[in-house]
Protein backbone atom coordinates (compact mmCIF):
# COMPACT_ATOMS: atom_id res chain seq x y z
CA UNK A 1 0.00 0.00 0.00
CA UNK A 2 1.54 3.31 -0.95
CA UNK A 3 1.28 6.35 1.27
CA UNK A 4 1.47 4.19 4.32
CA UNK A 5 1.82 6.89 6.99
CA UNK A 6 4.52 4.90 8.75
CA UNK A 7 6.81 5.55 5.81
CA UNK A 8 5.84 9.21 5.70
CA UNK A 9 6.50 9.68 9.41
CA UNK A 10 9.84 7.94 9.13
CA UNK A 11 10.76 10.06 6.14
CA UNK A 12 9.98 13.19 8.12
CA UNK A 13 11.99 11.89 11.09
CA UNK A 14 15.02 10.96 8.99
CA UNK A 15 14.88 14.20 7.04
CA UNK A 16 14.76 16.36 10.15
CA UNK A 17 17.24 14.34 12.19
CA UNK A 18 19.59 14.07 9.20
CA UNK A 19 19.74 17.83 8.73
CA UNK A 20 20.08 18.25 12.47
CA UNK A 21 23.12 16.00 12.59
CA UNK A 22 24.68 17.91 9.73
CA UNK A 23 24.15 21.30 11.36
CA UNK A 24 25.23 20.09 14.77
CA UNK A 25 28.40 18.61 13.34
CA UNK A 26 29.19 21.75 11.36
CA UNK A 27 28.57 24.10 14.28
CA UNK A 28 30.60 22.02 16.70
CA UNK A 29 33.57 21.53 14.42
CA UNK A 30 33.72 25.18 13.44
CA UNK A 31 33.35 26.29 17.05
CA UNK A 32 36.14 24.03 18.32
CA UNK A 33 38.38 24.97 15.42
CA UNK A 34 37.91 28.70 16.13
CA UNK A 35 38.61 28.24 19.81
CA UNK A 36 41.84 26.38 19.07
CA UNK A 37 42.99 28.45 16.10
CA UNK A 38 42.31 31.85 17.67
CA UNK A 39 43.44 31.14 21.23
CA UNK A 40 44.91 34.17 22.90
CA UNK A 41 48.46 32.85 23.08
CA UNK A 42 48.46 32.44 19.33
CA UNK A 43 46.30 35.36 18.30
CA UNK A 44 46.76 38.12 20.89
CA UNK A 45 45.13 40.86 18.83
CA UNK A 46 41.52 40.22 17.83
CA UNK A 47 40.04 41.62 14.64
CA UNK A 48 37.24 44.12 15.07
CA UNK A 49 34.47 42.49 13.06
CA UNK A 50 31.01 43.68 14.00
CA UNK A 51 28.86 41.94 11.47
CA UNK A 52 28.39 41.10 7.85
CA UNK A 53 25.07 41.88 6.24
CA UNK A 54 25.28 39.31 3.44
CA UNK A 55 26.37 36.52 5.71
CA UNK A 56 23.60 37.32 8.18
CA UNK A 57 21.06 37.42 5.37
CA UNK A 58 22.30 34.07 4.09
CA UNK A 59 22.06 32.35 7.45
CA UNK A 60 18.59 33.73 7.91
CA UNK A 61 17.19 32.81 4.52
CA UNK A 62 18.74 29.36 4.06
CA UNK A 63 17.62 27.98 7.44
CA UNK A 64 14.18 29.43 6.81
CA UNK A 65 13.91 27.45 3.58
CA UNK A 66 15.15 24.28 5.25
CA UNK A 67 12.78 24.77 8.15
CA UNK A 68 9.87 25.22 5.77
CA UNK A 69 10.84 22.01 3.97
CA UNK A 70 10.84 20.22 7.32
CA UNK A 71 7.46 21.67 8.06
CA UNK A 72 6.09 20.39 4.77
CA UNK A 73 7.41 16.89 5.28
CA UNK A 74 5.99 16.87 8.80
CA UNK A 75 2.64 18.08 7.58
CA UNK A 76 2.50 15.43 4.84
CA UNK A 77 3.17 12.75 7.40
CA UNK A 78 0.51 14.21 9.65
CA UNK A 79 -2.06 14.24 6.87
CA UNK A 80 -1.17 10.62 6.13
CA UNK A 81 -1.96 9.78 9.73
CA UNK A 82 -5.23 11.68 9.60
CA UNK A 83 -6.63 10.53 6.26
CA UNK A 84 -8.34 7.22 6.79
CA UNK A 85 -8.58 5.14 3.61
CA UNK A 86 -11.98 3.92 2.47
CA UNK A 87 -13.04 0.55 3.75
CA UNK A 88 -11.21 0.79 7.02
CA UNK A 89 -12.51 -1.48 9.75
CA UNK A 90 -13.80 0.51 12.71
CA UNK A 91 -13.09 -0.60 16.26
CA UNK A 92 -14.14 1.41 19.31
CA UNK A 93 -11.64 1.90 22.10
CA UNK A 94 -12.51 3.07 25.59
CA UNK A 95 -9.76 4.22 27.93
CA UNK A 96 -10.25 4.11 31.66
CA UNK A 97 -8.03 4.07 34.74
CA UNK A 98 -6.03 1.85 33.98
CA UNK A 99 -6.98 -0.29 31.02
CA UNK A 100 -8.13 -0.23 27.42
CA UNK A 101 -11.42 -1.76 26.32
CA UNK A 102 -11.90 -2.56 22.63
CA UNK A 103 -15.30 -3.19 21.09
CA UNK A 104 -15.31 -4.93 17.73
CA UNK A 105 -17.93 -4.50 14.99
CA UNK A 106 -19.83 -7.56 16.25
CA UNK A 107 -19.97 -6.17 19.85
CA UNK A 108 -17.24 -8.51 21.06
CA UNK A 109 -15.14 -6.88 23.78
CA UNK A 110 -11.53 -7.36 24.81
CA UNK A 111 -9.41 -5.69 27.44
CA UNK A 112 -5.81 -4.59 26.85
CA UNK A 113 -5.70 -6.86 23.86
CA UNK A 114 -6.40 -5.79 20.34
CA UNK A 115 -6.66 -8.32 17.53
CA UNK A 116 -6.91 -7.23 13.92
CA UNK A 117 -6.63 -9.03 10.60
CA UNK A 118 -3.67 -8.41 8.37
CA UNK A 119 -4.27 -6.36 5.23
CA UNK A 120 -7.30 -4.32 6.29
CA UNK A 121 -6.79 -0.72 7.43
CA UNK A 122 -8.04 -0.29 11.00
CA UNK A 123 -9.60 2.84 12.39
CA UNK A 124 -9.72 3.05 16.17
CA UNK A 125 -12.35 5.40 17.51
CA UNK A 126 -11.12 6.41 20.92
CA UNK A 127 -12.71 8.04 23.90
CA UNK A 128 -12.13 8.14 27.62
CA UNK A 129 -14.38 7.20 30.50
CA UNK A 130 -12.55 9.38 33.04
CA UNK A 131 -9.35 11.42 32.83
CA UNK A 132 -7.11 11.99 29.82
CA UNK A 133 -5.30 9.00 28.41
CA UNK A 134 -3.41 8.62 25.19
CA UNK A 135 -3.22 5.68 22.83
CA UNK A 136 0.30 5.11 21.54
CA UNK A 137 1.26 2.34 19.17
CA UNK A 138 4.97 2.92 18.49
CA UNK A 139 5.28 0.32 15.73
CA UNK A 140 2.73 2.17 13.62
CA UNK A 141 3.72 5.67 14.71
CA UNK A 142 0.23 6.55 15.88
CA UNK A 143 -0.82 8.35 19.01
CA UNK A 144 -3.86 10.31 20.06
CA UNK A 145 -5.32 11.45 23.35
CA UNK A 146 -8.45 9.83 24.72
CA UNK A 147 -10.68 12.63 25.94
CA UNK A 148 -13.90 12.20 27.86
CA UNK A 149 -16.88 13.54 25.98
CA UNK A 150 -15.03 13.57 22.69
CA UNK A 151 -14.16 11.07 19.99
CA UNK A 152 -10.69 10.98 18.52
CA UNK A 153 -9.25 8.43 16.15
CA UNK A 154 -6.12 6.85 14.79
CA UNK A 155 -5.78 4.53 11.86
CA UNK A 156 -3.03 2.18 10.83
CA UNK A 157 -2.37 -0.37 8.16
CA UNK A 158 -1.52 -3.82 9.57
CA UNK A 159 0.97 -4.87 6.92
CA UNK A 160 2.73 -7.64 8.83
CA UNK A 161 1.69 -10.32 11.26
CA UNK A 162 3.02 -10.20 14.77
CA UNK A 163 2.57 -8.72 18.22
CA UNK A 164 3.11 -5.05 18.97
CA UNK A 165 2.90 -3.30 22.32
CA UNK A 166 0.85 -0.18 22.86
CA UNK A 167 1.01 2.25 25.79
CA UNK A 168 -0.88 5.01 27.52
CA UNK A 169 1.16 8.20 27.08
CA UNK A 170 -0.92 10.80 28.88
CA UNK A 171 -0.25 10.70 32.58
CA UNK A 172 -3.34 9.29 34.28
CA UNK A 173 -2.35 8.25 37.81
CA UNK A 174 -0.63 5.49 39.74
CA UNK A 175 -1.33 2.81 37.17
CA UNK A 176 -0.22 4.95 34.23
CA UNK A 177 2.88 2.95 33.37
CA UNK A 178 1.10 -0.38 33.51
CA UNK A 179 -1.72 0.77 31.24
CA UNK A 180 -0.35 -1.00 28.19
CA UNK A 181 -1.49 -3.85 26.03
CA UNK A 182 -0.73 -5.97 23.02
CA UNK A 183 -1.82 -5.60 19.43
CA UNK A 184 -1.92 -8.92 17.59
CA UNK A 185 -2.04 -8.85 13.83
CA UNK A 186 -3.29 -12.21 12.61
CA UNK A 187 -4.43 -13.73 9.34
CA UNK A 188 -8.01 -12.90 8.27
CA UNK A 189 -9.07 -16.48 9.01
CA UNK A 190 -7.64 -16.39 12.52
CA UNK A 191 -9.37 -13.06 13.03
CA UNK A 192 -12.73 -14.56 12.03
CA UNK A 193 -12.17 -17.37 14.47
CA UNK A 194 -11.27 -14.87 17.16
CA UNK A 195 -14.46 -12.89 16.59
CA UNK A 196 -16.64 -15.94 16.84
CA UNK A 197 -15.00 -17.31 19.95
CA UNK A 198 -16.98 -16.73 23.15
CA UNK A 199 -15.90 -14.03 25.61
CA UNK A 200 -13.78 -15.41 28.40
CA UNK A 201 -15.77 -13.68 31.09
Amino acid sequence: MNNNPVALVDRSLYFTIGFSFFFLFAITVVMIWFVVRYRRSRNPVPSDIRGNGWLELAWTVIPTCIALAMFVSGWQAYMGLRTVPDGAMEINAYAQMYSWIFVYPNEKETENELVVPMGTPVKLIITSEDVLHSFFLPAFRVKVDAVKGMETYVWFYPDREGEFVFHCTEFCGTGHSSMDGMLSIVSPEAYQAFLEEEDDE
Binding site: P5, L8, V9, S12, L13, T16, I17, F19, S20, F23, L24, A67, M70, F71, S73, G74, W75, Q76, A77, Y78, M79, G80, L81, S134, F136, P138, R141, V142, K143, V144, T169, E170
Partner: peptide, 18 residues
Protein backbone atom coordinates in the same frame (compact mmCIF):
# COMPACT_ATOMS: atom_id res chain seq x y z
CA UNK B 1 17.53 20.87 16.46
CA UNK B 2 15.54 18.13 18.17
CA UNK B 3 12.93 20.83 18.66
CA UNK B 4 12.50 20.70 14.90
CA UNK B 5 11.60 17.03 15.19
CA UNK B 6 8.90 17.71 17.75
CA UNK B 7 7.77 20.78 15.82
CA UNK B 8 7.06 18.76 12.66
CA UNK B 9 3.47 17.64 12.94
CA UNK B 10 3.82 14.06 11.75
CA UNK B 11 7.14 13.32 13.41
CA UNK B 12 5.87 14.72 16.68
CA UNK B 13 2.96 12.30 16.77
CA UNK B 14 5.46 9.50 17.23
CA UNK B 15 7.70 11.14 19.82
CA UNK B 16 5.16 13.24 21.70
CA UNK B 17 4.96 12.45 25.42
CA UNK B 18 7.85 10.03 25.14
Amino acid sequence: LTGLVVGAAGADIHVHDT
